[in-house]
Structure formats: C-alpha cells, structure tokens
C-alpha cells in the first residue's frame, strides 16, 4: 500500500498536464460560440475533410514516410556496425551518435539554415571543386533532410539495443548448420531485430508527421504541414476550435498507427522465437 503513495505526485502531474489539456482540446474541438452561448458542434471535424486540409495531411504523411524510409535505410546498417563484434566495446561511437541530441533541436535546425544557403558552406565547397551552386534550401528535400538529421538517432538506438541483445549462440548455430552470412542475416538477425525496427519506425514517424519547425525553417514556409496548420490556427488566426479538432484527428491517427505497429511487433516476436 505504502508504495502506491509514491505514485501520487505523478498522478497529480498527469492530471494537470495530460488529462486536463486533453479534455480542454476535446471541449474546444466540439464547441462553437453563438450569440446564444456555446453549443455542441462537429463542424470543425467536417471542415477537415475539405480538399485543402486533406492535401496538407497527405503531404505531412508523405514527407514523414520518406523520412522514415531514409532513416531506416541509413540507421539499420549503422546499428549493425555499432553492434558488431569489432565495435561493440567502443562505447564512444554510440556516445557520438547521442551527443547531437543533447543540443537544442531548434539550434540544430538553424544550423542547417546557414549550411544549406546559396552562399553557405556546402555550396562554397561545391563551387570550390568546380561544380555549379545548387538550390539546397527551401525545398522539400531540405525538409526531409532536416527531419532525417533530427530523428535518425531515434531509429538507430532501438535497433542497436535489440541487435546487441541477440544471443550470439543462435547466430553460431546457424553458421554451424551451413548458412552463409546473407542467410544468417535474412533468417536470423533481421527477424530477431524486428521489434527494434518497429519501435524505431514509430519513434521516427510520429515526430516527423507532426513537426512544424523543420518545415517552417528549412521549407521557407512553403510546405505547410499539419503541424504548421495547427500552429497557425492557434497562434495566428486564433481559430482554436478547428485547431483542436485537427489535434484530435492527429492523435487518433497516431494512436491508430501505434496500435497497428504494436500488433505487428507482437506477431513477429512470436515468429522470431520459433
């Protein structure tokens, strides 16, 4: 009994900072003010289905999807290398991977702003070796780059921590039975690492689909994502009702994809152990 008392500050914390705001968002999202007072309405949710807003959502999902794929393609080999025999004792590498995360996310994004400029460092180098300068900033790829850069550690770390825990004797057994290294990877390592991959995907996709700073700074305000839309509705036009409705829709989408992911994760855990 005594132990559970310790949890009360957290319960209070959660009520104040999670439950109450959630109720407020639902309240704002489903209410409209009329001269007679407040009344229940679903008009904010209806408005979301206009092509304009669907397009914004599709763009957010699309960019987040590309970002996740790139992170996976870059992150998996990195995790493999970090977890491999040669490097697993070199904690410094993991440390280097994590260090950028200690610095403020906004600062890191601002840094890209100057790196990618027309007269920035990267373009100066490019023109130094005799190639024409490129438009690196203020396009979709700059946004994707910013996302990948910021979220890559969230892909690497979960995969790494799963890979490092794989029982070496299973791999040895596969090798003893005549599997070459490709087969070992395909049949043993990859299936066993799937839980890490799934949580990596979740941890990259979620922040990528809701980001607004990266698209604002590196996209030059031209790539309105759902996060930007919510920001503008709350901070600029003051349409809290529609902004709240969008936030709710976003939360539902995230919960939905998490549910799919966790089911998938479980299935494969079972499969992996067989």
């Amino acid at each position: 009994m005594k132990k559970s008392w310790v949890a009360y500050p957290y319960v209070v914390w959660m009520i104040m900072f999670i439950v109450v705001p959630l109720i407020l968002i639902i309240f704002y999202g489903t209410v409209r003010t009329t001269p007679q007072g407040m009344e229940f309405t679903l008009e904010h949710f209806k408005r979301f289905f206009e092509p304009l807003y669907i397009m914004v959502l599709v763009r957010s999902l699309y960019l987040a999807f590309i970002c996740t794929i790139v992170c996976l393609l870059l992150g998996y080999p990195v995790s493999m290398i970090l977890a491999s025999k040669e490097y697993r004792d070199k904690k410094i590498l993991i440390f280097l991977m994590v260090i950028p995360m200690w610095m403020n996310f906004l600062l890191r994004t601002y840094a890209w702003l100057t790196l990618l400029e027309k007269n920035g460092i990267i373009n100066t180098l490019i023109s130094f070796i005799g190639l024409p300068k490129m438009d690196l900033l203020y396009n979709q790829w700059a946004v994707v780059l910013g996302m990948v850069y910021n979220f890559l550690p969230f892909m690497v770390l979960p995969i790494y921590s799963v890979l490092i825990k794989i029982d070496k004797s299973i791999i040895e057994a596969a090798e003893d039975l005549g599997a070459n290294s490709r087969t070992v990877f395909r049949k043993v390592i990859f299936p066993l690492s799937l839980p890490g991959v799934v949580s990596g995907i979740t941890m990259v996709f979620m922040p990528a689909v809701t980001t607004f700073v990266i698209s604002r700074l590196l996209g030059g305000g031209q790539f309105l994502l759902i996060g930007n839309l919510i920001e503008e509705l709350f901070l600029k036009s003051g349409e809290w009702g529609f902004g709240s409705a969008l936030s709710i829709i976003m939360m539902i989408l995230i919960l939905f994809s998490m549910a799919i992911m966790s089911r998938y994760e479980k299935e494969n855990e079972g499969g992996g152990l067989l």
């Binding site: 702003l113 400029e117 027309k118 007269n119 900033l137 203020y138 996209g219 030059g220 305000g221 031209q222």
Partner: peptide, 21 residues
C-alpha cells in the same frame, strides 16, 4: 507567384538579403 518565391520569411529576411541569398 508561389513557384517564383524562394521562401515566406519573417525576421530572417535581413540575414538572407544581406548575405546575398
């Protein structure tokens, strides 16, 4: 005009114009 616009900016405009961007 949107396809001609490099970016929609706030205070960054100063740095960008001074830097010849």
């Amino acid at each position: 005009q949107k396809s001609l616009v490099l970016a929609y900016v706030g205070d960054e405009v100063k740095d960008k114009m001074v830097g010849g961007e």
